[in-house]
Amino acid sequence: MATMTSVPETKRTPRVYAVKVQTRRGRKLRDNLTGYAFLIGAIFCFALFSWFPMIRGIVMSFQHTKRGVTSWVGFDNYTRIVQDPSFWTAWKNTFYFTVLALILGYLVPFVVAILLNELRHGKGYLRILVYLPVMLPPASALFLFKYYAYDPSDAGLFNAILKFLHLPTSEWMQSPTMTMPAMVLASTWMNMGGAVLIYLASLQNIPGELYEAAELDGAGIFRRIWNVTIPQTRLILALLAMLQIVATMQVFIEPLILANGAGTQDSATSVAYLIYQHGFFQNDLNGAAALGVIMLLVLAAFSAVYVRLTTKQD
């Protein structure tokens, strides 16, 4: 910097100025080298495990491989996959799962977080209890549901409870109408712990004076939640809603384990499972890639609309 101040800006010759700029750039580059070096790792991992497979998948969706020979087939895979009788069923199931998961999996953690936040004693223990299922590997948790809770005979936990209460029992995963609610129930139980903790952190950041002021204005508990809690946690609520929708639209492990795949007459077939079925059971990797691209486009479109809407609101 000393050299820069020694020569007044107006008196510098162009040559000297160019040298200075180069030196400055070189120094800037050196200064940022550490940052670039750290970036290489992330870029390498993203490129290898995210971007390359994504591009490869898009390319594959326009190809067909037979006897080890790959040829370009235009939109044939897309046409074929849309004509698969399970295609619309899979989308319908996926949307149904997403909506149910939004009602149950979005609302329940928020309510639980509010309740936990209101507690004066044992908050820590209850927080651990709520978070405990997240620590179970998803496959183990789902097998627990499959063999212990959802057993279609009277020996199953849920059926035993229903029987004890003199209520009609269910065949759970074997019933076309109960398959989706049962999957959502298991999924919510498994995943709600993380959402509860995030909501709790957000709730604890709400200034107490706001509640006090609301109370002075005569607001009851529901009014306080509506007028204070929800507006104050709106950003987190919006973010988690989007993350939840994007995650639940990719539901896969639940049908795979709970319903042994497609379930009763495709009642558990999700789009992600249909991709798996085409790719690995029907040896149709190109069709699977086409369906994967369709799903990517749907989720990208949803995310774009969602971000635009929430940005406008803010």
Binding site: S175, G261, A262, Q265, F281, Q282, N283
Partner: peptide, 16 residues
């Protein structure tokens, strides 16, 4: 194997 995967659905249909 691909055809068997398709026919699983018919079998599960009548059994569930």
């Amino acid at each position: 194997q691909a055809i068997y995967a398709v026919l699983d659905s018919a079998m599960s249909g009548v059994l569930t």
